[in-house]
Amino acid sequence: MSLLTIEGVWKHYHHHSVLRGIDLEVAPHEVVCLIGASGSGKSTLLRCVNLLETIDDGAIYLDGAEITDVRADADQVRGRIGMVFQSYNLFPHMTVLDNITLAPRKVQKVSRVQAEKQAGELLARFGLSDKARAYPDRLSGGQQQRVAIIRALATQPRLLLLDEVTSALDPTLVTEVLGVIRELKDSGMTMILATHEMSFARDIADTVCFLEGGVLLEHGPPEQIFTAPEHPRTREFLQRVLDAGRL
């Protein structure tokens, strides 16, 4: 059974349709990459899955239960989904450790000792143990983004959403963040990534989805999408990416 099912999802902003009937299935342990031009609706789709936006039609199911049901508890749903943002969005007034333990302590009611122990393990796993007591503004962009990923993992989500997590980073810092994502894939994490890093998408994705103008035009394994795309619009997009030297 699929972990996440997106069924005919529509989203409008002021009479402008940003998502136009999106259908997508994500199996457990699957890594899905969303690609497409700027403004094609990748971020919006991720925000809808995390219920940060209310959809205007369709339905989204997580583990078989509809999360877009108006009676569903949105906070309870978000507790099972982690999200990482392009601009990290760490809480600047808290140390790295407090950023990570906030949700476990306040939402999941884990004791501080227990939460800090788990946070310590995650920090060690991703090579950030010495930064636990630092404030976010003392960290490099790559370190901040790795902390943001750890923060999202600390609640042990079923599904991780990553929205262009490397596009605010200096190229030399991109690798360290991509390394973390690769490790998460190896540990079996189910993930949906919106990304402009085509070579990374080709490398890590089980399924690549091409969005254009709010429509999921084509999806399939990376070999197929990147080498033999069926849709002419996909070919055009990939050609543009190729011309820009990003593939």
Binding site: D75, R78, M83, F85, S87, F91, L102, A103, V107
Partner: peptide
């Protein structure tokens, strides 16, 4: 607002 989004995405009420 991104601070709110981040907090809400962590399931904080």
């Amino acid at each position: 607002p991104s601070q709110r989004s981040a907090a809400r995405s962590l399931a904080l009420s």
